[in-house]
Amino acid sequence: MAQDRPTASELLSAIADFLREEATPALDKAEPRLAFQMRVAVNSLAILEREARLGPAADAAERARLAKLLGRDGTLEDLNRELARQLRAGTRDESDAALMAHLDATIADKIAIANPKWR
């Protein structure tokens, strides 16, 4: 059964907003070292919020692409293990356009969660 609202994403946003706007300014005055740690924590909460919102679809799309690329099915972990093995063995390389399209899409989804401002 689905949980009630707030959704995971909404609740994480609410926590991050509170810590950023109310707790951090207070810590800046009282405990600068802890204020720095708090910023790290707020940043991590923002990652989790994006992951709760975007992660499931990104994982499903990655798994579907991998199954097509490798011509077999399996868990996301299994399929990535097989791809990593082929890449180390050199049986696939950057000249493979389907491979590169897959990696581009996968990393675009990952960075959109971990750090969308990265360029």
């Binding site: 790290v40 950057e94 990393i107 750090n115 990265w118």
Partner: peptide
């Protein structure tokens, strides 16, 4: 360490850069 833990999620930044560099 929360700080060390959070660095794990920075690795993908280098994956973005690597795909560009290659």
């Amino acid at each position: 360490s929360m700080e060390l833990a959070s660095i794990g999620r920075r690795a993908v930044e280098t994956e973005v850069d690597l795909l560009q560099l290659l």
